[in-house]
Design a protein around this nucleic acid. Structure first.
Length: 313
DNA sequence: CCACAGGACGGCT
DNA sequence: AGCCGTCCTGTG
């Protein structure tokens, strides 16, 4: 049964600026269809390294678990389809999660003015969007990411969810939500060994306990400056500068961060510095050069460099 | 068997 | 403040 199409207009505030977006939203057969969506590419969004819970299907769509729900997402020619969802859920959840209130066209125009390197990177990763993921899930996921590879990160997050999350069925298969703070806080480090997180298991355990006990309030990070937010996150064991910046960026909390791992470092040295540069030097440069758009610039640059093997040794 | 991976930590100087 | 060995596990 198809409901009448409606124009959904969502007003939202971000910082001091007031903007609005209008999308044509319709609903049919447990599927919500959103038209007039620009600057979106599913591969770019789900495989740029910001999330570990979206699986590419044979037809090119992506199935994932987020916000205690399982959905299948596909995008083509300005139209976004979210399977196993409703117009209400789109309005309440996926609009925000997919960062559809942000005008990436405008951001790309601004960044493209910077230099030729960025123009090429933007052209390559034109459909990247920064997901606004749950900060608790992002925190644990990127603690796991330390000195680790993507397939194993996905496996560890998957096991954690299967053992400690809630089962959700979709198309005859079982999926599992990311575990709550209490569930992980009430385990032991030995219990967590099943997820094969290695030396990171103790970080997961202690971090979960710190969050549960209110040592750091994740909800308050939105209300403080970027420097303070990073310092707060670095109180958690297993969270250094790089992980802290990933958590801030991929949870939609801050955009003026530039997560700098060894790859990004090499890319910046090769494309911008033309010589070796320290982490501190790189941080100071990007803060001044990219400003509040540093995080989004990082994503275009990193995706471009990784896919084109720039910086590979 | 060994190197090392999309870092953090702790113990140095 | 910077440098460096070490850490789980998996892969080559």
């Amino acid at each position: 049964m198809k409901t009448a199409s409606s124009i959904l207009v969502i007003y939202y505030t971000r910082g001091k600026k007031m903007e609005y977006k209008s999308y044509k939203v319709s609903e049919e057969n447990n599927k919500v269809i959103i038209e007039n969506v620009r600057d979106f590419n599913a591969v770019h969004v789900f495989e740029c390294g910001q999330s570990f819970r979206w699986i590419r299907q044979e037809d090119g769509s992506y199935t994932g678990v987020a916000k205690d729900r399982v959905v299948n997402i596909r995008y083509a020619d300005g139209t976004l389809e979210i399977l196993n969802s409703t117009a209400q859920d789109f309005k309440d959840i996926w609009f925000d999660y997919l960062d559809l209130g942000r005008d990436y066209g405008e951001i790309k125009d601004k960044l493209a003015e910077k230099d030729e390197i960025l123009r090429r990177a933007i052209e390559f990763g034109y459909g990247i969007r920064l997901l606004r993921q749950d900060i608790w899930e992002t925190l644990i996921s990127f603690i796991i990411s330390a000195n680790n590879r993507i397939p194993r990160i996905m496996k560890t997050v998957g096991v954690l969810s299967r053992v400690y999350g809630k089962e959700i069925e979709f198309e005859g298969q079982s999926y599992y939500s990311f575990p709550s703070v209490d569930r992980l806080a009430n385990t032991t480090i030995d219990d967590l060994d099943v997820c094969k997180g290695g030396f990171r298991c103790k970080y997961i355990y202690h971090t979960a306990n710190m969050v549960r006990d209110g040592k750091v309030d994740l909800r308050k990070l939105n209300d403080v400056g970027t420097v303070s937010a990073r310092e707060e996150l670095m109180k958690f064991p297993g969270v250094g500068p790089k992980v802290a910046d990933c958590v801030l960026l991929f949870s939609g909390t801050k955009q003026d961060v530039f997560p700098t791992d060894v790859w990004v470092k090499r890319v910046m040295e090769e494309l911008y510095f033309k010589r070796e540069a320290s982490f501190k030097e790189i941080q100071e440069f990007v803060q001044d050069y990219f400003g509040e758009l540093a995080g989004i610039a990082q994503q275009y640059l990193f995706y471009y460099a990784r896919e084109n093997r720039i910086g590979a040794t």
